[in-house]
Amino acid sequence: MKQSSLNRILTQAFGVLLGIGIAIWVLRGFGILTFVPGGVIWLLLLGAIAIGILSYAQRTWWRF
């Protein structure tokens, strides 16, 4: 797999996780998705941060 395609996949995964996490957080705040536990929201947001860091590291440091 080429470096640019891996970076594109990581960037898309970052955006998707961050978007879903923020959407669920906002909908839960409005009282629409009250059944979603807070831990799930934290996992989505922390997963997005981790994938963002991996994407940055892959783009700048890992040259394979």
Rank of each mutant, 00 (worst) to 15 (best):
S55G: 04
G19I: 01
V40N: 12
W42M: 11
A57G: 12
R59N: 04
Y56C: 05
I53H: 04
G21M: 05
G52T: 01
G31A: 14
V26T: 10
L43Q: 11
I41E: 07
R59E: 04
R28Q: 15
A23M: 09
V26H: 13
L46D: 13
I41F: 06
G21L: 10
R59V: 04
G52Q: 03
V36I: 12
I20H: 07
Y56L: 05
T34W: 03
A48W: 08
G19V: 00
V16Y: 13
G19W: 09
I41C: 02
P37R: 05
T60A: 04
T34P: 09
G47K: 08
L46K: 11
W25C: 15
Q58D: 11
R59A: 05
A48K: 05
L17W: 13
A50E: 03
L54Y: 06
S55W: 00
L43H: 09
L46N: 03
G19Q: 01
G52S: 04
T34I: 13
I51F: 10
I24L: 12
L45M: 08
L45A: 08
T60K: 00
L33K: 07
I32C: 08
T34D: 15
P37T: 12
G38D: 14
I24C: 02
I20P: 07
G39W: 11
V16W: 07
L33Y: 07
A57T: 00
G39S: 11
L44D: 07
S55T: 00
I49M: 14
L44C: 11
G31F: 06
G47V: 01
A23R: 05
G52E: 00
A48R: 03
L43E: 15
T60G: 00
G31D: 11
V26Q: 09
A57L: 05
L27D: 10
V36H: 04
I41H: 10
Y56H: 06
R59M: 08
V16K: 02
L43G: 14
G15N: 02
G39Q: 06
G29A: 07
V40R: 05
V26A: 09
F35E: 07
I22N: 04
F30M: 15
I49D: 12
P37L: 00
G39N: 10
L43I: 13
I22W: 08
V36L: 02
I51W: 07
G15Y: 01
I20G: 05
F30E: 14
L46P: 10
G21R: 02
A50M: 01
G21Y: 08
L27A: 10
I24R: 11
F30L: 14
A48F: 13
R59Q: 11
F30W: 15
T34Q: 13
I32K: 06
R59D: 05
V16N: 06
L17C: 07
P37Y: 02
V36D: 05
G39C: 05
W25N: 12
G47A: 01
S55D: 01
I22V: 11
A23E: 09
W42E: 10
G21D: 10
T34S: 09
A57N: 07
I51G: 12
L44P: 10
I49S: 13
I20A: 13
L18N: 02
S55L: 03
I20N: 12
